[in-house]
C-alpha cells in the first residue's frame, strides 16, 4: 500500500488505512523487536531499514547515505526505544530533503513577481504531464487566475486534443497550432497569447521524450529558449514530471532533463498506487531540486502540494 495516507480525502483514507495497517505493524513491530533491550543500532535494525528503503525505490546510494546518517546520529545520542529510533529515522530523512534549502510551497502558485508566470512542463513518455497540467490549471483557476494552456506536444497522436479537453474541463484558455507544428513556435506564441490576453499564468505542455534521445533533448532546450525570447526570464518554472512507479532510472531522467532545461521543480505522479516514489528522495538530494506537487488520483482535484514532513511522517508514522 502507498504510505501517502495523509494526502487522501477522508473516505479514501479509510480504505487505505486498512491496507496500511499491515505495513505499519510489520515495520514498527520488527523495529521494536530488533531494538528490544539493546542500546545501539545493530545489523538487524539496519537490515530491516535497508529493506524498507530499497523496496520503496529509495535506491542504494541514498539508502546507504541515510543509514550512515543514522549510525552517526545514534553514536552521538544513544536511543533507548523503538519509538525514539523511529523518530531519528524520520528526522534524518526530513533533513536530507531539507538540505536542498527549499521550503515546501504554501500555495499551489510559486511566488514570481512577473506577469504572466510561465510554466514549462517536461518528462519522459507516459508519466502524466498533460494530466498534471490539467490539475494544476484547475488549482490556479480556483484561485481566480486567468490561465492559458499551450499545446507544444505536437508529436504524439491526439496530444493536442487531450490538452484541449483538459482546458475545457478547467474552463481556461487554450492555445494551439495543431499537430506536427514546430513546438518552439507554439511555446513562443503561447507566451505571446498570454501577454496579449492578460493571462496570469501560461502552462506549456511538451511531448514526452526519453532523456537518452539527444536530439529531442536539444529540441527541449530550443523550446525553452524560444519562450525566453518572447519573455526574458521565462519560463519561470520548469516542471519535471516523474512517475512514482519508476525505479532508479528516474535519477537519469532528472539529470538529463536538468541539463537540457534547468528544471526548477518536480511533480511526482501516480502516488495513489502501490508504488512509493522513494526515488524522489534521492533526486531531491542529489540535484537540489524541490518536489513541489504530487498526484494522488485521476480526478481533477487530486493534485497536492508536496510536504516533506507529511511525506516522511507517512513513511514511518503509526
Amino acid at each position: 500500500m502507498s504510505f501517502f495516507s495523509k494526502f487522501f480525502s477522508k473516505e479514501k483514507k479509510e480504505d487505505l488505512d486498512k491496507g496500511l495497517e499491515k505495513t505499519k505493524t510489520s515495520f514498527l513491530g520488527k523495529l521494536a523487536k530488533a531494538v528490544a533491550g539493546k542500546s545501539s543500532v545493530d545489523e538487524e535494525v539496519l537490515d530491516e531499514l535497508e529493506n524498507i528503503l530499497i523496496s520503496s525505490d529509495v535506491g542504494l546510494d541514498t539508502t546507504i547515505k541515510i543509514i550512515q546518517r543514522i549510525e552517526a546520529r545514534v553514536a552521538r545520542d544513544k536511543y533507548l526505544s523503538a519509538a525514539e529510533l523511529n523518530e531519528i529515522l524520520r528526522d534524518e530523512i526530513v533533513q536530507l530533503l531539507s538540505d536542498n534549502n527549499t521550503e515546501d510551497l504554501e500555495d499551489f502558485l510559486p511566488r514570481h513577481d512577473v506577469h504572466p508566470i510561465v510554466f514549462m512542463v517536461v518528462g519522459v513518455n507516459g508519466v502524466g504531464k498533460t494530466t498534471t497540467i490539467g490539475k494544476l490549471a484547475w488549482q490556479f483557476k480556483q484561485q481566480g487566475k486567468k490561465v492559458v494552456l499551450g499545446a507544444a506536444d505536437t508529436f504524439r497522436a491526439a496530444a493536442v486534443d487531450q490538452l484541449k479537453i483538459w482546458s475545457e474541463r478547467v474552463g481556461c484558455d487554450f492555445f494551439s497550432k495543431g499537430m506536427n507544428t514546430d513546438p518552439a513556435a507554439v511555446a513562443y506564441e503561447t507566451v505571446q497569447y498570454a501577454i496579449q490576453n492578460q493571462c496570469d499564468i501560461a502552462i506549456i505542455d511538451t511531448a514526452g521524450r526519453l532523456h537518452t534521445k539527444i536530439n529531442l533533448m536539444k529540441e527541449l532546450s530550443k523550446i525553452k529558449n524560444s519562450i525566453a525570447k518572447r519573455m526574458p526570464g521565462a519560463p519561470h518554472e520548469v516542471l519535471l514530471v516523474l512517475d512514482a512507479t519508476t525505479g532508479q532510472n528516474a535519477i537519469e531522467q532528472a539529470r538529463h532533463f536538468t541539463e537540457a532545461t534547468e528544471v526548477t521543480a518536480l511533480a511526482l505522479t501516480k502516488l495513489d498506487g502501490t508504488a512509493k516514489g522513494g526515488v524522489a528522495i534521492g533526486i531531491s538530494d542529489q540535484f537540489k531540486i524541490p518536489i513541489k506537487y504530487i498526484g494522488v488520483g485521476e480526478a481533477i482535484d487530486k493534485l497536492q502540494i508536496f510536504n516533506k514532513r507529511a511525506f516522511v511522517n507517512s513513511l514511518f508514522d503509526q
Binding site: 520503496s56 525505490d57 519522459v124 512507479t245 519508476t246 525505479g247 512509493k276 526515488v279
Partner: peptide
C-alpha cells in the same frame, strides 16, 4: 509494463 518500473513491478 514500462521497463523503467522500479520495485513495485512485482506488486503490479
Amino acid at each position: 509494463v514500462d521497463s523503467m518500473t522500479g520495485q513495485d513491478a512485482v506488486n503490479t
